[in-house]
Amino acid sequence: MNSETENIILTDTLSLKIEKDLTKPLLITFTTTEKTQDSTFYPKIFIDTIPGVKATIIERYIHTGKVQNSYTTNTQTTINLAPNSNIEYIKIQDECLKAVHSSSFIGKLEQGATLNFFPISIGANGSTNKMEISLLGQNAEANIYGFYQGRNEQRIENSIIMDHASPNSISTQRFKAILENSAKGAFTGRVKIAKNAIGSNANQLHRALLLSDQASCLAKPELEVNADDVKCGHGATVGQISEEELFYLMSRGIPRKNALKLLFIAFTQEIIDMIENNVARNICELHLSKTYDKKIKQQKRVCK
């Protein structure tokens, strides 16, 4: 295992309290093998922090079996951020493609706390991720930068409840998706702004790239604003790989395959670049890079 990280093997329930700044990211890994056929797992993580600490945490689900098998992971993560603590939290779901992954992530932020959360879904046939963030203290800030991808029959569903419960709280939801074959994605981003949460600022953006006519994606913002003097913004786009960008790269000698790879990386980079910790960013890139080549094969040739 990696010595650039503090490693924890997750089996069942993990409770920990972050009491000092962590220099290395904490890497919590849950591994399934070929022996996990028809099993259901319920890993749970509880994290508390003391005020003012800063840490990067990676929660990761991987499958090491040579044979794909069907199993279910039902995960539950709860994190409480004490005042002014600053947590970068990356969740990588890279399960085997026959698995079902269902997750619940609950974050509670006290005054001045900052959570940068990166939910990344790569594997599993069906993946449902529920995220519920409560901005309980003034000036609390939660940013969710998500990426998911699907191919074949994969289904990915992300739903967020962002609860602004106190004044001057800030939230961002930025998601990117790449879907191909008959993959389907769904995104629901609900923002609730309580009556006393004046001066709050919430924005949301969802961008999907569809690589086939059968792939689809539905993004739905839900705004519930009960306070005055707040800023809310949302947007969603669905697009294809730009033929002009592809041609520009190819006209410089870059073969279609490599050009597509560059464009996929460029699309996801906006999310990955937001990860502050280098080691954590590298781990994410490693998980993502092996998926690009598979996708490239799916792209139909446009040039003669």
């Binding site: 960008e245 190819m250 006209s251 000698g253 870059i254 073969p255 460029a266």
Partner: peptide
């Protein structure tokens, strides 16, 4: 293919060069 043409020494300076964010 366009990339092969480029490799064989053809170069087009575009009238409107496009932006490619992320690379």
């Amino acid at each position: 293919e366009p990339d092969v043409r480029a490799k064989e020494g053809i170069f087009l300076s575009f009238q409107y060069p496009i932006e490619i964010p992320g690379i």
